[in-house]
Design a protein around this nucleic acid. Structure first.
Length: 414
RNA sequence: GUGGGUGUAGCUCAGUGGUCAGAGCACCAGGUUGUGGCCCUGGGAGCCGGGUGUUCAAAUCACCUCACCCACCCCA
């Protein structure tokens, strides 16, 4: 009989990898809560319409990367490909704005995109997300980036680059699109790569960040997005950049930074690593000032970001072996019930440890204690039962002594 | 969706037509009748990813298929 394997692009996160994930989650809670963010737990399944309307029905994500299927009553459901749409839905539906002022939320969990897996990319992947609603101030943008930067630093990551850009707003984005089209109209399109020739009609912004050298060459003379944004957008960006500078956060303005989700406006940013392969972006985000209103909520501006946990994990050092306080080796079946009581007493005192449930040689049990990284190996055999004591072996020094079981907790404390 | 690479023991891999398929590491046991790390000895373990074909003979050659990896695309 053949065994059933996991689904393509879905992985079991275990051992050291699981510990890294735990670490990233713990740091997110700790850092984000210091900035006033509250945790939000969202469903993984939403109406397909939510994503089509927020991410944009022409985007690659919606066009070809979603896990979409009908439920038993024929409703169109989709496993979330990203978190912002669901957060905005909750913001509106649960009236999270009712307290007035800023609403700051973060969420951690799996996302799903039907793409071909490769390094740093899975079909089920995990993100840490933060979203702040209710202010259009550029200072909020700077604070969000500061929080993200701080988070990454507290994970121990330093060799990262912050790229930032402005995509313009409702007013100036179309103006730029037009200027870009004009430029393309006067360029020999046949010299672009096949992909770019297609993109020229559908999404000309994408030509800006094509990696093909001939396309980059051709786009060198293209009008810059930053030169086309309106004065409000320009001063917004300048304030953000100014704040970043004052905060000591290094950045690179990248006018080719185009994001693939339609809702982004004005400030967009990305954190990039050169050490994890082609999928180099470990975090990304930006403003989405019109999205809440577009989804039927109040006209509240917002900004958010997402961190890819699998990609961050590639940069984290292995946490090293786990250690434990004690291992209790029961050497005689007579001792099992007494052993259980002793273990439980120690655990109640906060010590971490375990015991055997099946008899095995003293040698193999001592070896087992060693592998567990136990600080102490406790022996309970006929001698100890007769003497009503425990043999305690300090695994690092190799020294051992007898100990009454009431003194065990003190023994471990040393 | 497209391209390239790789599938042999738990892991890393050797083995390119010919006895019952190998190594290192890991695991288990013994050497030490109640003691870990080092050393020595032994042991368990593999439909050689799956299928079809060529051949007297296939892990090895051909075709198909599946999976994984990397890249394109796109994004976290």
């Amino acid at each position: 009989m053949s065994s059933i394997g996991r689904i393509r692009g879905f992985s079991d996160i275990l051992g050291q990898e699981a510990r890294k994930f735990r670490f990233m989650e713990d740091r997110a809670h700790s850092v984000f809560s210091r900035y006033g963010f509250r945790e939000l737990r969202l469903p993984m399944l939403e109406h397909t319409e939510l994503f089509a309307r927020s991410i944009g029905s022409d985007t690659d994500v919606v066009q070809k990367e979603m896990f979409t299927f009908p439920d038993r009553k024929g409703r169109h459901l989709t496993l979330r490909p990203e978190a912002t749409a669901g957060a905005v839905r909750a913001y509106i539906e649960d009236k999270l704005y009712s307290g007035g002022g800023l609403t700051k939320l973060f969420t951690v969990g799996p996302m799903f995109r039907y793409e071909r897996p490769q390094k740093g990319r899975q079909r089920q992947f995990h993100q840490v997300n933060a979203e702040a609603f209710g202010s259009a101030s550029p200072l909020l943008d700077a604070e969000m980036i500061l929080m993200l930067w701080t988070y990454l630093r507290e994970l121990g990551l330093t060799d990262l680059t912050l790229q930032i850009n402005s995509l313009g707003c409702r007013e100036c984005q179309p103006v730029y699109a037009e200027r870009l089209q004009d430029y393309l109209a006067h360029t020999d399109r046949s010299r672009f790569c096949a992909d770019c020739q297609e993109r020229a009609q559908r999404n000309p912004f994408r030509l800006l960040d094509c990696k093909q050298s001939q396309c980059q060459e051709l786009m060198r003379g293209a009008p810059s997005m930053l030169d086309s944004v309106c004065s409000d957008c320009r001063s917004h960006l300048d304030t953000v950049l100014d704040s970043l500078q004052q905060l000591g956060i290094p950045y690179e303005v990248n006018s080719g930074l185009v994001r693939g989700l339609d809702y982004y406006q004005r400030t967009t940013f990305e954190i990039v690593s050169g050490a994890i392969g082609a999928q180099s972006s470990v975090a990304g985000g930006g403003r989405y000032d019109d999205l809440v209103r577009q989804l039927g909520g109040p006209d509240h501006p917002a900004i958010g970001f997402a961190c890819g946990m699998e990609r961050l994990s590639l940069l984290l050092e292995d946490p090293g072996p786990e250690v434990t306080d004690f291992y209790l080796a029961v050497l005689d079946p007579e001792g099992f019930s007494e052993g259980m009581r002793i273990c439980e007493e120690l655990r109640r005192k906060g010590w971490k440890g375990e015991m055997n449930q099946e008899t095995a040689s003293v040698k193999s049990q001592t070896r087992h204690a060693h592998r567990l990284g136990a600080r102490f190996c406790l022996f309970l055999g006929q001698e100890e039962l007769a003497r009503e004591s425990i043999t305690v072996k300090d695994m690092s020094s190799g020294q051992q002594s007898q100990c009454g079981k009431e003194h065990l907790p003190d023994m471990l404390r040393q």
